[in-house]
Every structure is written in structure tokens, then in C-alpha cells.
Computed example of a mutant assay.
Amino acid sequence: MRIAVLADIHGNVLALDAVLDDLERRGGADLVVNLGDCVSGPLWPRETFARLEALRLPTVRGNHDRRVAQDPADDAMWPSDRYAQERLTAAQREALFALPLTLEIAPGIVAFHARPDHDEKYLADAIVDGQLVLAPIAAIKRRLKSLDPACRIALCGHSHRSELIRIPGGPVVFNPGSVGCPAYDDDTPPAHVSEQGSPHARYGIVELGAPGRPDRFEAIAVDYDHEAAAKQAEQAGRPEWAHALRTGFMKD
């Protein structure tokens, strides 16, 4: 079985289309799973929702999917979430909120956005000097304790960092990186940034091995018209997003 793994599209329909085209050139997949944070961002939330709705992918809820569905009167809403919320219908927002926290997409293979029991806390990362770094293995194991012991592959997103971690006595954790948002800053204490280091759209492929054979994991970076995405962010008044889309880094 061949599984394509998408995460953190963030309204970047250009990056999503580039990933889907690349996947088709590689022979496609038996299953494509979406790990959430579908539309939040100053780009194309309505168009991205429509594209995903037509694809009908197994999808889990990300923290920004939940936030986009919040009451519009919430003045604390983050700008990217508000931008998306204002461009979606009430029914579309409700559909995002109704997405499940976790999905078992195949026997022993579980998909979730951040952690299996929380859509916003990091699984494999710690914050050191304002940057995301790999967390200690003991911490990652504790964060996975709600998983069924039969889980052998855990698919997650949220950090926008491509990671492959084999947990001793536990599952393999695979984060494909972000389809549509190569860098971000988060001022929630402790404030930090995540940076992929290039503007490429990221996704992953998992090939399940036959009995007695190992599974294979591939993290893929796809070039696309990131300049058009950056200009869209600029038109929306978000120069920091434009810089991230062009470079994969946040400005100092």
C-alpha cells in the first residue's frame, strides 16, 4: 500500500496543486491523507477548501481548522484565521470543526495533526532559544502514550518540519513538512519560529512493506510558483508571510 501524506496546506492552493501534480507524475497513491490546517492564511482559503472538498481526502482537524470555526466576534482570533473565516461560509467552517482529532487510516497507521490527544501541542519538538528543535525521545514517548500499542506508524504535522523518528518499542513518527507554509512565527509564550529553509511545497509518501519487509518513507520537496503566493500575501497586507513564502525563513 502506498500512502501520500499532506499537512499544513494553509490556504496555499498553488502549492497544493503542485504537490498533487508531482504525486501523479510519481504514479499516484492508493490513499492520500490530509493532516489538517487546511485553509488558515492570507492566500486562497475558499479555493483551497473547494479543491479539498472535491478530493474528499481522509482528513484530521488541525488547530487552525478549529480556530477558523470560532465565533467571528472573538477579537483574539489570529489574523490568518480571521482572513480565512471571513471567506468561508458557515457550513464550510462547521465542516472544518467537525473533522476528527485522529483517524486510523489503515491497520496500525494513525493520523493526527499535532498529538493524538491535542491539536495544538508539539509532538516531536521542543523550543530552545526561540527555535523548534527535536525533543528528547522520552518526551516524545510520553506524548504518544494515548496511542493504541498496536500503532506502528504515526502520521503528524503541525510543526511544518519534516521529521522521521523511530520510537524504541513504539511507532515510527513521520511528519512530511508543510505543503503551503514553509515558515512561521508564533508569539504564544515561549515565542518561537519554525523554518523549513526553502520555499518548496513539502509532502511525504509511505510505502507499506509486505510481511517481513520494511516500510519506506520519503519526504518530498516540490518547486512551485511561490512568487505568486508571496504576492498574494502582500496584497492581503502580510509582508512577513510573503517573506516566508519566498525564502522558507522568517525575517530577523
Rank of each mutant, 00 (worst) to 15 (best):
A221R: 13
P100M: 10
S159L: 10
M250T: 11
E94V: 03
K121F: 12
A114F: 05
H243I: 04
E104I: 04
A219V: 07
D125R: 06
I140H: 02
R216C: 01
A69S: 14
K145C: 12
L164N: 00
P58D: 07
Y203P: 10
F249K: 15
E207R: 14
R166D: 15
Y122W: 14
E240T: 15
A111Q: 01
R87M: 07
P189R: 01
R56Y: 08
R246S: 02
S146M: 03
L144R: 10
R26G: 14
E94H: 09
A54P: 00
G108R: 05
A54E: 15
G41F: 10
D186L: 12
R238P: 03
P79Q: 09
S40L: 04
E240K: 15
T59D: 01
D187H: 14
V33I: 08
R143M: 03
F49T: 06
D223H: 07
A201F: 05
C156I: 00
R51P: 10
G130S: 08
V222I: 12
P176I: 08
W78I: 13
D187T: 13
G130R: 08
A76V: 12
E86V: 01
R238A: 15
T188E: 14
P239S: 06
G204E: 08
A76R: 15
R152I: 01
E53R: 14
A50M: 09
R213S: 13
E53F: 10
H158R: 06
R161P: 00
S80W: 11
A138E: 15
T89E: 06
A191W: 00
A233W: 04
P176M: 09
A4L: 09
H160E: 14
L147P: 05
G170A: 05
M1S: 08
A201D: 07
V193K: 12
A73Q: 12
L43E: 04
S159G: 03
